[in-house]
Nucleic acid binder design. Structure first.
Length: 425
RNA sequence: GCGUCGGUGGUAGAGUGGUCAAUUACAACAGACUGUAAAUCUGUCGGCUUCGGCCUACGAAGGUUCAAAUCCUUCCCGACGCA
């Protein structure tokens, strides 16, 4: 993996770059589309590609449970398995520590409003008995499968092993995504754990990379030729993840520790910025962290975001984003437009025979009307989610692409102002 | 014409004397969704409301009762059977 900065945004942390992977280049900043279970829900890879997506991110935890990372390895790796030719990434399962753990069964999400009750409770009650599918142990996390209830213990090493079997170009360290509702003491403990895990991830990754290249050189006889041709030996890049919740000191400490982490001269290839955020805290956290992370390595803001978040992140030095919103919102009937999100099932669209956006170049807008898409949703037709996802993915991906172009053209701030002026949240 | 069964809110369909403005499902309407436990979830769904209630409602009209969607009478409508 190689990262080249093409241009920097003046008076900010922002930059334009090209991230090269064994499966092609990623023009950054870039929006990574989420394909958790080795599929971008409701879309086939051609639709994903035509919508403009450059890279797909799948999930370690989900693919480990089903169909199993060994099967993906046998298939020739994630990209081959799902027929996605371009770059791929896998998340480590760290987010599931949060979503199936502290957030399980609660009204708590990746991004919270500052008014959420969970943020306003000064001293939190002991909810250690609350039902959850993820429990954090000394060495790793035990997950109770949401599919069949079976118990699985994921350690940092295990996550990396799975991710090596999955074979994505970029993989992430196994971290603990914490809730901003946790107190400082807990954030410190969790951060310490995340850092210890990061080290173990890096060690395991270095070990597996070494094994990979030696068996390639030796042409290990137990490896059949098919496997050799199936990218199994391609190098993978490992990103370390910065956590630290809402605390400036913890965020900075984490950025420092993760960026300096080094085993026999080997470091992380890039960085993820993780955590569940109160919306208002996101930009400060990103800024704190990116001022410390080494400039020459790529940064990925995990699980973000909305259009306004993308501008914020890019201006503050983020190179990669991933988010489920375009596809999830699409499937649930919410569509992005330049003036804000619309709910396509609203009565007013039943007889609206214009595209979702008149000047949108996506397949859905070029071929279908709001009335038709509304009809598909009302009729619960499968094509509804597909057309909506195509539009939303295209909207977000091309927004990031336009932001990139505006940086190259030195019109970033004008573009941002113009866009956000029209876009009602 | 006689007999039997039935007519409940947008639909289907519970309820068979008080706890019923009426279970439930669907439809409808609105909202939520940020490293996917999610083609999911939440709320509203007779009218008015100072949110305590008030009014109008279970085919129609009468009646019994402290109290009726629920019991009685007549009528209207539907299905089936017999003429």
């Amino acid at each position: 993996m190689n990262f080249k900065i093409e241009k920097k945004l003046e008076n900010s942390l922002g930059r334009v770059g090209i991230l090269s992977t064994p499966h092609g280049d990623i023009q950054t900043p870039a929006f990574v589309t989420v394909g958790t279970k080795a599929t971008v829900k409701s879309l086939n890879p051609e639709q994903v590609s035509v919508a403009g997506a450059q890279v797909v991110l799948a999930n370690t935890y989900h693919l480990f449970l089903q169909p199993g990372d060994e099967i993906v390895a046998k298939a020739g790796g994630l990209g081959k398995f799902m027929n996605w030719q371009g770059p791929t990434m896998t998340d480590s399962g760290g987010f599931q520590v949060f979503s199936l753990g502290a957030a399980y069964g609660k009204d708590m999400s990746k991004v919270l409003k500052i008014t959420d009750p969970s943020l306003m409770i000064p001293e939190r009650f002991d909810d250690s008995d609350a039902p959850r599918l993820a429990k954090i142990g000394q060495d790793g996390v035990s997950f109770k499968s949401h599919l069949d209830g079976s118990i699985h213990y994921i350690t940092p090493e295990k996550s990396i092993q799975i991710q090596h079997n999955l074979g994505a170009d970029i993989i992430f360290a196994f971290d603990e995504c914490t809730s901003p509702a946790e107190d400082v003491k807990y954030q410190e403990e969790a951060l310490d754990r995340t850092h210890k895990w990061a080290k173990r991830c890096l060690e395991e990754h270095i070990k597996l990379e070494a094994e990979k290249s030696s068996s390639k050189v030796l042409g290990s006889p137990r490896e059949d030729s098919a496997r050799l041709s199936q990218n199994i030996f391609l190098p993978q890049a490992l990103f370390g993840i910065v956590q630290g919740g809402r605390e400036e000191s913890l965020r900075k400490k984490s950025a420092q520790i993760i960026s300096e982490m080094n085993i026999d001269g080997k470091e992380f290839d890039g960085f993820g910025i993780g955590g569940s955020f109160a919306k208002e805290d996101m930009s400060t956290a990103v800024k704190w962290v990116n001022e410390i992370l080494p400039e020459e390595k790529p940064r990925h803001l995990l699980g973000i975001g909305e259009p306004e978040d993308l501008f914020m992140g890019i201006e503050n030095g983020v190179d990669l984003f991933d988010c489920v919103l375009p596809t999830r919102l699409g499937r649930n009937g919410t569509l992005y437009t330049k003036t804000g999100k619309i709910s396509i099932t609203n009565t007013k669209f039943r007889e609206d025979f214009t595209p979702v956006e008149n000047d949108c170049e996506c397949y859905s807008c070029k071929n279908y009307t709001k009335a038709y898409i509304a009809h598909l949703f009302h009729g619960k037709e499968m094509l509804a989610g597909t057309l909506a996802s195509i539009h939303n993915l295209h909207f977000i991906v091309s927004l990031v692409s336009k932001i990139r172009q505006s940086m190259l053209d030195d019109t970033f701030y004008e573009f941002k102002e113009e866009f956000l002026k029209n876009y009602k949240t």
